[in-house]
Design a protein around this nucleic acid. Structure first.
Lengths: 235, 235
DNA sequence: GGTAAGATTTCGGTGTGCCGAAACTCAAGA
DNA sequence: TCTTGAGTTTCGGCACACCGAAATCTTACC
């Protein structure tokens, strides 16, 4: 009976489904979802069916998985929690930005709303987390810089780093050591031949970035901002 | 597989077993344990057997349940977590002492050691929680005031309130409204006839306390302190 | 010492989320 | 159009902590 009220599995699925479309448009497939969650594909198929019954997701068999508005609301709630907690750990407890993910992964499911909102207030309702990901407001609104992933940025373009994916802590440590951080201005110099590294200039220093780095860094070429979101009410 | 590494059920059992002997000597029975945990007696019997196999408890069938040194270590660790979290919620987030229990009950299982110790440091390593319960040190030592439960205090005795059980939030709110709090000096005036209320004086005010209150308040009639505990190392 | 009441354990069974293997679907290329 | 293999779902099964009912043990009292 314990798991009956343990919402956290559902929360994880929904969060990952949503996050997948946050910086690119393709909806997620069950196998990618399985890989992200570290589960067998068969488990995910079953669970996605349950999400469907719960009104959180829509899944055409053999097709992609998409969230209902209800699912989006829950996902935004979880993303708000995750990112507020990450920010809090960095600001209040001096965690490194490469050290916050695992702790947030657990706490996002267990802090009460009351405590979470108290923390948000102490932090002054921040709008982005230490990696540049937007923190949804309590009402579900999200505002983020319009951005392209570095790999797809045209040669010669100049932009400000607005997001660095937190998927790989090793990469985060490397980037920090190289002084590649949020809000740093980057110039895309060009790509080395034969699918090689991407050459960029950050400040006065030039770097050759591998594919993992080039797909983890997002730059904003301009100052436009996108606002979206679904009200959180019934979550 | 999720529950395989979910230690929190074990942690709850061990914590309750230990807490039962914290302020009185009788070891706990499976039925009392079941009542405290809100579970069926049969479930507890089974789980206690597993605690035995795990080397955390000793249970002679049909007898009481006692912790091994290993079990005590885990229990102290959990009590430290629970009570530090309660203290933290009161100090940093202005929770009322009647509001902290449920949140702590969840978070004690989910905060990392790193975060917990950071919190302890911010609080200045407190030695007792908002209800007067001792907070075990990180090394497992416990120091608490020697105390008797109010119901058993001899008539005429004078003592300082050193602990108020947090089991019933309603009672806590009532006591707060009556200005009966930690460190208040209490005089036991006597018992009303026929198992009636216990009359006490707190400051200048007299109160008639029912049995629930009289078994929830502990007073120290002297200044002696008891230190105990088992090193926490391998927990 | 026997016995009944109460406490405790055993037993069969449940829901949940997970897994691997087998069966199935679909789309791309021949 | 047919084939094929990658991707997906179905199926049988597992571990876990739990439950109620039935069986068993203990203890207190006669």
């Amino acid at each position: 009976m314990r798991a009956a009220r343990d919402q956290s599995v559902v929360e994880d699925y929904v969060k990952v489904i949503y996050a997948h479309t946050e910086w690119q448009p393709e909806p997620i497939t069950t196998s990618v979802l399985a890989a992200r969650l570290g589960l067998a594909a068969s488990s995910v198929t079953e669970m996605v069916k349950k999400l469907g019954n719960a009104g959180l997701a829509i899944h055409v068999p053999y097709g992609a998985v998409e969230l209902t508005p209800e699912g989006v609301r829950l996902a935004l709630r979880m993303l708000r929690r995750h990112r507020l907690i990450e920010t809090w750990l960095v600001e209040v407890f001096s965690y490194g930005w490469d050290e916050v993910h695992d702790e947030a992964e657990v706490l996002e499911h267990t802090l009460s709303d009351r405590l979470l909102e108290a923390i948000a207030e102490q932090l002054g309702e921040p709008s982005r987390d230490p990696h540049g990901d937007p923190i949804p407001a309590a009402d579900g609104r999200v505002s983020r810089a319009e951005a392209v992933v570095l790999r797809d940025a045209p040669e010669g373009s100049v932009g400000r780093i607005v997001r660095i994916s937190d998927r790989d802590p090793t990469l985060l440590r490397y980037l920090r050591a190289e002084a590649i951080a949020l809000d740093v201005e980057l110039t895309v110099l060009g790509r080395r031949p034969f699918g090689g590294a991407l050459a960029v200039r950050a400040g006065a220093v030039e770097h050759d970035l591998g594919d993992e780095a080039a797909t983890s860094i997002w730059i904003s070429i301009g100052e436009s901002t996108v606002t979206s979101g679904v009200p959180l009410e019934s979550s």
